[in-house]
Design a protein around this nucleic acid. Structure first.
Length: 570
RNA sequence: CGGGAAGUGGCGCAGCUUGGUAGCGCACCUGCUUUGGGAGCAGGGGGUCGUGGGUUCAAAUCCCGCCUUCCCGACCA
């Protein structure tokens, strides 16, 4: 490909509203352009990378025996009503009506459609099956951000396994886990497989593949000693037990004028340290006002609350709702003696005595609270968010919290979708059985952005050979010089003949511009043809990531470059 | 949806406080010179100043509404 014929609109300045490195560089280097919020056009360079990522994913899926499909992006609304997710997905699902006033949706995921196809299976002999596609998903994200990292329209490889039983699902799940590790290794992404919450997808086990990056949107708790790794939405840590003095016979009310926060009560005369306070939060779980209590110095993780309650919509109550139900404002709330509202209590409060909490009257607290005696029939759950430095539950080592990009996610789904879609097969006894399903996803554009995020320097992108838009760029410094362009042409045709993916920079521009562009675009190898080296019969082979340069004779340049590229293709 | 910021040629910005009909750098076109790390000179093209309304003799500038985009939080590949 000749650069002079290509549409590679590089920019000297990044757009002002791009903050993530991958976003800035993909725009500057001419890979993507925004159409509107959360929707990006892939330019020729961007599509090349995208296709190479997709090809790697496809190859690894094929390698575990998965079969490729292509399903519609637009679905009948009724399909989603049957699975029950018409309601669950809320406003994140794009919905529209056709000319007959029929509800249609843009697919966010394809469990329903694949299950519909699976309904054609009728015998256990046809199982297991693993099906996948690489297809556009639409999600009306509340906040698209960071270029390709979080968008509303994106290509996802989504796969679905159908097995007769849990053991089969386990095999399919493990096959995917292995395949995903191979995919990310080929993309040169260092991933951590972590325990995760299943969220709106349902199901009981899920593993996320996380790439550490400050621009990520997830936090992972990690133990560097024993390897414990979990999304903060599921992570646990050991809480040292505290020795409480015995509580009195009953909680005691005391005046706390103006005290509205945990911290304020710590320093208040007659108050209590934060770990001897009970924090009371008023939440609304699917329209049900609910109290959530934690230790004063602990933080609530909303996803944990959603997971243990099964609620779809979880939000803090408004001050008005709180006042109406409890008769006090935030800062003076407590769960002691409350019997008309559901109460969730964090495990760390079990057995605690002599605790202090709000009295449900402004400017009053109660102390001497025995949690299990005074809080009526709470539902116990792990609700607290792990903090950095807390002890690993497995080995006691301090945990670290790492910001991550979620590059892939695998779920054990169970039988819900098959049941809803009427999928059943006869087993070897002629008895109808509902297959068990798994679902597995990798965002192609997100993976591409994650690579850009982790493979760049101050000059631009540094693509791994496996997914680089081109493997080699031949930079002819002075395209008007006959000797240089002759040498360049020879390299170009020689490398092309060996199947090397080559960009030939024959533009009549100043050398500085061409060298800077080559590095911005991030082609992993550059062969520089210039008068200085050529006079000695040499060209220069530079590796983008290290910027190591070596002189290679013109005669050997094709073979040496092709070998170097070949060795790094994976 | 809560909080913050911003919309002026392709990109980055100034102008707005104190209204007078739009400017700078990069990019682009033409010519000449230049050619190993984002050249120089000369000439040139391109903007309903997000949008609707209002105030005014006059609005990029002042006032009101709306739209859009970005950033921080709650959601997901």
């Amino acid at each position: 490909m000749r650069w002079s014929d290509s549409f590679i609109p590089t920019l000297r300045d990044a757009p002002a509203d791009a903050t993530a490195a991958s976003h800035q560089l993909l725009v500057r280097a001419g890979f993507i352009r925004q159409l509107h919020s959360g929707h990006y056009s892939l330019l020729p360079l961007g599509l090349r990378v995208h296709n190479k990522v997709a090809d790697i994913v496809r190859a690894e899926m094929d390698a575990i025996g998965a079969q490729e499909f292509l399903l519609p992006a637009m679905h009948p609304g009724d399909l989603w009503r049957r699975s029950g997710r018409w309601g669950v997905m809320g406003s994140e699902m794009f919905r529209l009506r056709d000319r007959n006033d029929t509800d249609v949706v843009l697919g966010m995921t394809h469990e329903e459609v694949f299950a519909t196809l699976a309904a054609e299976m009728s015998s256990y002999r046809e199982l297991p099956q693993t099906w996948y596609q690489i297809q556009t998903k639409f999600r009306d994200e509340p906040r698209p951000r960071s270029g390709l990292l979080r968008v509303r329209e994106f290509m996802m490889k989504d796969s679905y396994s159908f097995d007769m039983d849990e053991a089969g699902l386990e095999d399919s799940f493990e096959a995917h886990r292995e395949a995903y590790h191979k995919v990310f290794e080929r993309l040169d992404l260092e991933v951590m497989a972590v325990q995760a919450s299943s969220g709106a997808m349902g199901g009981d086990a899920s593993v996320e593949f996380m790439v550490a990056s400050p621009v990520g949107e997830d936090d992972v708790a990690r133990c560097s000693r024993c390897g414990y790794r979990a999304n903060i939405e599921r992570a646990r840590a050991a809480v040292p037990s505290l020795d409480d003095p015995p509580a009195g016979d009953a909680p005691e009310r005391f005046a706390t004028p103006g005290i509205r926060t945990i911290e304020a009560l710590v320093s208040f005369e007659g108050g209590a340290p934060a770990d001897r306070q009970i924090k009371t939060m008023v939440m609304v779980l699917d329209d049900q006002l609910t109290l959530v209590v934690l230790r004063g110095d602990h933080q609530l993780n909303l996803q944990k609350l959603a997971d243990c309650s099964g609620a779809i919509d979880v939000r803090p109550a408004t001050a008005a709702e709180t006042l109406a139900e409890l008769g006090a404002n935030p800062g003076s709330l407590g769960a002691v003696g409350i019997d008309h509202l559901p109460i969730y209590a964090d495990e760390a409060l079990r057995g605690r005595r002599s605790m202090t909490t709000g009295a449900n009257a402004d400017d009053w607290h109660v102390r001497g609270v025995d949690v299990e005696r005074d809080i009526i029939d709470p539902r116990w759950a792990d609700l607290r968010e792990v903090a950095a430095g807390e002890a690993c539950v497995d080995c006691g080592n301090p945990l670290e919290i790492v910001r991550c990009i979620e590059a892939g996610h695998i779920f054990k789904l169970g039988r819900t979708y098959c049941e809803a879609m009427g999928v059943s097969v006869l087993d070897d006894n002629g008895v109808a059985q509902i297959p068990i399903m798994g679902s597995y996803g990798i965002g192609i554009g997100r993976a591409m952005a994650a690579v850009a995020e982790t493979h760049h320097d101050e000059r631009g992108l540094c693509w791994p050979v496996a997914i680089a838009p081109f493997e080699v760029v031949i930079t002819v410094l002075d395209a008007s010089d006959e000797a240089q362009s002759a040498a360049g042409e020879e390299l170009r045709s020689g490398l092309a003949a060996l199947g090397v993916d080559c960009l030939y920079d024959d533009r009549p521009l100043r050398p500085g511009v061409k060298l800077a562009d080559a590095e911005l675009v991030g082609v992993p190898y550059r062969v520089t043809v210039g008068a200085r080296s050529l006079a000695q019969g040499n060209v220069e082979l530079m590796q983008r990531s290290t910027r190591e340069t070596r002189l290679v004779s013109v005669d050997e340049a094709v073979a040496v470059t092709a070998a170097e590229v070949g060795a790094n293709r994976r």
